[in-house]
Design a protein around this nucleic acid. Structure first.
Lengths: 132, 132
DNA sequence: TTGAGTGTATCATATCACATAATACACTTG
DNA sequence: CAAGTGTATTATGTGATATGATACACTCAA
């Protein structure tokens, strides 16, 4: 429920999930939405840890996952930077979306829902948002 | 990866999730799909534990969640039975589907995907299944 | 060259969820 | 009464997570 700022980013952390997972996901979302520019430097592990009031190891864990995602590059002695390759971000977004969609459809089918059911509940869920 | 049988049911358990969660989900799915008849008795805690080669406490944990779902009724000294109310099963299915759809749409939007994106990836995911 | 700031690695410690094991209790039925 | 129900309790063990304290290799500006 509480907001914590780190540079231009804002984080919401709670106890429902591992901290490093929450940091990781919110960083992924910020990158995917272009809220951090390509090639931009993100706060250092120690800075981020202090801003979020979290242990540096926890931030480091999240940063290492980001690099495995291909979303960041770390330069020893310099810091961690968003990848300057739009293709890598795009690839991440597509793989993620495909994964989420597959999981959702498979999950619904495991409970016996047909494609028509799925479409119906999605329409209902969409109603809660502005159509873009 | 391994299949374990308990009465008419078949379970697949691994180490990727808590055991009680896997038992719970697969029971929910069996009930939602009508693979267990309304009012039917399900294996006792000890039976199920032996069939699945799992601790009775673990099975008990799953059974108690099932009752919280409104999917089963427990009669002390007799056993655990699927609810005989079709409405309760229907209600569970609807609430579950609504929840899954909302979570999915919200998750996709958190990464900046529009409704058109969502529809596109869903079509792609659907292609992996038979249209019913 | 030095010092401050990078990411990273390694200990130790603590907590929590999960699973198991062993018992025990209240209840129902044959 | 005996066997089979679900449930509760206590103890033990394990793994993931988080913290804290240090240390190391690297880069860059002063």
């Amino acid at each position: 429920m509480e907001e914590r700022r780190a540079g231009t980013l804002t984080f919401r952390l709670d106890l429902s999930q591992p901290l490093y997972e929450q940091i990781l996901q919110q960083m992924r979302q910020a990158i995917a939405k272009g809220e951090i520019g390509l090639g931009e430097k993100i706060p250092s592990v120690r800075e981020m840890a202090q801003s979020l009031r979290v242990n540096p190891n926890t931030v480091s864990h999240a940063y290492q996952e980001l690099e495995r995602d291909g979303l960041t590059e770390t330069r020893r002695g310099q810091g961690t930077f968003i990848t300057s390759s739009p293709e890598k971000v795009q690839r991440f977004r597509e793989e993620l979306a495909r994964h989420m969609a597959r999981e959702f459809v498979a999950g619904m089918r495991a409970y016996g829902f047909t494609w028509n059911d799925i479409a119906r509940f999605l329409q209902e869920a969409q109603g809660r948002h502005v159509h873009e």
